Amino acid sequence: MIKVFNRWSALALTAFCLPLLAAGALAQMPPRLQNAPPPQLQDTQGTATLYLSAVFSGETKPIGEGLVWRVYADAPDGEDFKIMVKSQDASPSVTLPKGDYRIHAAYGFASATRRVSLTRDTVERLTIAAGGLRIRGAIGTNPIPPEKMTFSVFVPVGNNDEGRLVVEKARSGSVVRLPEGTYHVVSSYGDSNALMRADLKVENGKLTDATLNHRAATVTLKLVRAAGGEAFAGTAFSVLTPGGDVIREEIGAFPSFVLAEGEYVVIARHEGQVYTREFTVESGQDRDIEVVAR
């Protein structure tokens, strides 16, 4: 009986010790192995998704292009905002840690901003009061090539049409997105004095498409020994108004540029000699202007 008792006691002791040994081995395992979740599982309890879109004022259809979104982490007064997300998608969705954020939607030079507390998946739709402005140019019925014309946009201030510059030297034919309002546009054909001005209204959710008719022409200057002769290289040309204001200065055999319609004087300097000629520019009439060295 004693042997039998000891055998069962040993079995019981072994059964009692095995859980303790297993617990001890588990305690000695690195924490990384003890607590690591299965690879396919992710903790998403601390994040939420922000679904963004924008509309024009008074509209319900989302803006489909031209938007730039930025989401900033909120910051105490006096501290810089940290950008968390930037997207050019029309309607992006972004997943962020829960917290406070500032949403900024830019549509060209127009924009809208909103503060949001992200505690769960959230839909935010911002309203932007903006439209588009596209400027083209023409000489009579002939369109001006886009690469030869630019336009600048100003916001009038008081009696000053060019009070504040908003857009500088935009390419002809491009669309500029602006807050709704009235703007002063200055169109430049070439890079001399061929300018046209207009006041144009940008309406919410619409494209203002305007063509400005310039009165100008391209002239090519030459200093020659006789009419129709070969041009002298290295000639310094100055183009002035009849009142003496300098419009353009160039050096070369035959410089070419655009001038507004009107009366001009050209001065040609070559090898210490000075020659002059008066000439007229008529809109749409491109021509060579020869100065004869006499």
Rank of each mutant, 00 (worst) to 15 (best):
V4D: 14
V4A: 12
R7H: 05
S9V: 15
A10N: 11
P19M: 08
A22E: 03
A23T: 03
G24F: 00
L26E: 01
L33M: 14
Q34D: 12
A36L: 13
P38G: 11
Q42W: 00
D43R: 06
G46T: 14
T47F: 10
A48S: 14
L50M: 04
S53V: 02
A54Y: 02
A54W: 00
V55W: 08
F56T: 01
F56L: 06
S57I: 11
G58H: 07
E59A: 15
W69K: 01
W69L: 06
V71P: 01
D77L: 12
K82V: 15
K86R: 15
K86G: 06
S87L: 07
D89G: 10
P92Y: 01
V94C: 05
D100F: 09
D100N: 13
R102F: 11
A105K: 00
G108H: 07
A110S: 07
S111A: 15
T113F: 04
R114V: 14
V116L: 10
T119C: 00
T119S: 10
R120T: 10
D121W: 04
D121C: 10
V123P: 04
T127H: 04
G131Q: 10
G132Y: 02
R134E: 09
I135G: 00
G137D: 04
I139M: 09
I139S: 01
G140W: 00
N142C: 06
P145L: 08
K148H: 13
K148D: 14
T150K: 05
S152Y: 03
S152E: 08
V153K: 01
V155W: 01
V155I: 15
V157T: 09
V157L: 08
G158L: 07
N159T: 13
D161C: 02
G163L: 09
R164C: 02
L165F: 02
V166T: 10
E168Q: 12
Y183M: 09
Y183L: 11
Y183S: 06
H184S: 07
V185L: 08
V186N: 02
Y189F: 15
S192F: 05
L195N: 06
M196C: 11
K206T: 11
K206F: 08
A210V: 14
T211K: 04
T211P: 00
L212F: 02
N213S: 15
N213Q: 11
H214P: 01
H214T: 06
A216D: 02
T218H: 06
T218Q: 12
V219S: 01
R225K: 14
G228A: 10
G228S: 10
G229W: 06
A231K: 08
G234C: 01
T235S: 05
T235K: 04
V239K: 01
L240I: 05
G244M: 09
G244Q: 07
R248W: 09
R248Q: 15
E249W: 03
E250R: 09
E250C: 06
A253Q: 09
F257Q: 02
V258A: 07
A260K: 10
G262H: 00
E263Y: 06
V265K: 08
I267E: 09
I267G: 03
R269H: 07
Q273F: 03
Y275F: 15
F279L: 04
G284Q: 02
I289H: 02
E290K: 01
